[in-house]
Amino acid sequence: MNLTITAVRLLRVLLALLLLAALVGQTLSWPGQIASVTQDEPALAPLRWPLTAVAVLVLVCVEVVIVCTWRLLGMVVADRIFRRDAFGWVDGIVWAVTVGWLLLAAGALALGVTIYVTPELRDPGVPIAMGGMVLVGGVVVLLMVVMRALLRQAAALRADMDEVI
């Protein structure tokens, strides 16, 4: 069996599990966790619904990336990845990652401001962790933009080779 097909099958299993985890997190885990934290910390109570909305929307972005990746894997198996059809799915990934990163940055900023102005919550660990996640998210966004440019170049080369042959 071809190694690529095996890798695609395994990756699809992992993507399905990740999608399931994202759906559980989106509907049960994060809303419940945020509700619990805001009950324990009354100073965070005004942020309950904004944080819940940000968490759910970030998970929607993750789900979009999973679906787009699934479709791109189908194109890899069919040897159609270097065609124009792929750009729509790659653009979906780029936009979902960008929106998720912006939501994460906005949530980190809101949480950081709340922690800064609330004397009882001056633990630097959470803002540092959120800042790290925002940095990692920025790297992923820029990496996706570069990967899209590489796909465009590869598709152009493939089209040139198809014309020659």
Rank of each mutant, 00 (worst) to 15 (best):
L28W: 04
L47A: 15
V126P: 06
V136N: 04
L18M: 08
E63C: 08
L19R: 04
V145E: 08
T114W: 03
L73R: 09
L47D: 12
L11P: 03
V164N: 07
V13M: 10
A35W: 03
R158T: 07
F87P: 09
P124V: 02
P46A: 04
V76D: 02
A105N: 11
D162L: 12
G125T: 09
G107D: 02
L11K: 01
D79V: 04
L111M: 15
V140A: 05
A129S: 12
P42K: 04
C61P: 14
A16T: 05
L121I: 03
L157R: 14
S36R: 10
L142N: 10
V136E: 04
L44V: 01
L15P: 07
L142A: 10
L104A: 15
V97H: 03
G25A: 01
V94W: 02
D79E: 11
D123N: 15
A45H: 11
G25H: 02
A43K: 07
L143C: 12
R84E: 13
V140Q: 05
P46F: 01
S36P: 00
A86T: 05
L121H: 02
L15T: 01
V117F: 15
P31D: 03
W89L: 03
G125H: 04
G88Q: 07
C68S: 03
M144T: 14
P124Y: 01
W49C: 01
V8K: 06
I5T: 14
G131Y: 08
G131S: 14
T27F: 01
G137H: 06
R71F: 00
D123K: 07
M133H: 01
R148M: 03
L135Y: 08
D79H: 12
V77T: 14
V146I: 06
A45C: 07
V136I: 13
P119V: 09
A96R: 05
L121A: 05
I128T: 15
R84D: 15
L109F: 14
E163N: 15
F87G: 01
V134Q: 08
V90N: 14
R158D: 13
G137S: 13
L51Q: 12
A155N: 06
I165C: 13
L103R: 10
L157T: 09
P46R: 07
G138E: 02
V77Q: 12
V164K: 13
G100A: 13
R84I: 10
L121M: 07
G132M: 00
D91I: 02
